[in-house]
Simulated scan of single mutants.
Amino acid sequence: MKVLITSGGTTEPIDDVRGISNFATGALGKLTAEYFLRAGHEVILLSGDKALRPEPQERLTLVPIMGTQSLYEAMQDVVPQVDVVVHSMAVSDYRPVYMTDFEHLPDELTEASLTTFRPKREKKISSKADFQIMLLEKTPKIINAVKQWNPDVLLFGFKLLSGVTPERLLKIAHEKLSQTKADFIIANDLENIQGQAHQAYLVSEKDADRVISMKNKSEIAATILKKSEELRHD
């Protein structure tokens, strides 16, 4: 079985030395990759620049990822070749368009003026100004394209919320199943993730009434492996 795992977080460049990122460590992606490798499967791991990674080994292909665009291009190339996609990467929802100081802002702040006013990107933005204003644009939802690239792939997606009830978390997870056409969504709450302790729920469209509860990263990785082997054969 050939498996694609995305892990860690993206970093969206502001200039050549700065970027916007997140706190994702890639610990779960690393562990999931190790479970598949120990079971004898081939793994392609797309991981963020600072993500934890397994030791180099046979059957493991490591592909470093920076921004959303590089992730999109890599997944578009690899997804048609694999049997399973585990999309656990924390992908930036927004990316910088430009950053400027008050002096150089358009006189009228409207969507039209901001989207047409795009100064030439500097290699390194000056730090002389006391304040800077940054314009961000929404990034594409890459998971929505996975089934378009490979309708037969087994797709595991993730949904992370913070400080919600289990009922609310599961409701949003089922909505994401419908939006993404994923086979499974692993739903988790940031407040229930501490080290190896990681409360999460596995939901699926085909078995909507059955929710699998998992209490740590090892259980999550083992469950993903088990479901993959049940539904995909070498």
Rank of each mutant, 00 (worst) to 15 (best):
T11R: 04
T11D: 00
T11Q: 02
E12F: 01
E12T: 00
E12L: 11
E12Y: 01
E12A: 10
E12G: 09
P13K: 15
P13A: 15
P13R: 15
P13C: 13
P13E: 14
P13V: 13
I14G: 01
I14R: 01
I14P: 06
D15F: 07
D15M: 10
D15N: 05
D16K: 02
D16F: 10
D16N: 14
D16H: 12
V17N: 10
V17F: 06
V17L: 05
V17D: 05
R18Q: 01
R18L: 04
R18N: 03
R18K: 06
R18A: 04
R18C: 07
R18I: 10
R18E: 11
G19A: 09
G19Q: 02
G19E: 07
G19N: 08
G19L: 06
I20A: 02
I20Q: 13
I20S: 03
I20Y: 09
I20N: 03
S21C: 10
S21D: 05
S21E: 09
S21M: 13
S21T: 15
N22S: 14
N22Q: 08
N22G: 12
N22K: 13
F23Y: 14
F23E: 11
F23N: 10
F23S: 13
F23G: 00
A24V: 02
A24N: 07
A24M: 04
A24K: 09
A24Y: 08
T25R: 13
T25Q: 07
T25V: 06
T25G: 01
G26V: 08
G26W: 00
G26L: 05
A27L: 12
A27P: 12
A27F: 09
A27M: 12
A27K: 15
L28D: 08
L28G: 00
L28K: 02
L28Y: 03
G29F: 02
G29K: 07
G29C: 02
G29P: 14
K30Y: 04
K30A: 00
L31M: 05
L31R: 05
L31E: 07
L31N: 06
L31Q: 09
L31G: 00
T32E: 00
T32Y: 09
T32I: 07
T32L: 01
A33S: 14
A33E: 03
A33M: 05
E34Q: 14
Y35D: 06
Y35F: 14
Y35N: 12
L37M: 12
L37H: 11
L37I: 10
L37F: 04
L37N: 12
R38W: 07
R38Q: 11
R38I: 03
A39R: 10
A39C: 04
A39N: 11
G40T: 02
G40E: 08
G40H: 05
G40N: 05
G40Q: 06
G40C: 08
H41L: 01
H41G: 01
H41Q: 14
E42C: 02
E42I: 11
V43I: 14
V43W: 08
V43L: 11
V43K: 05
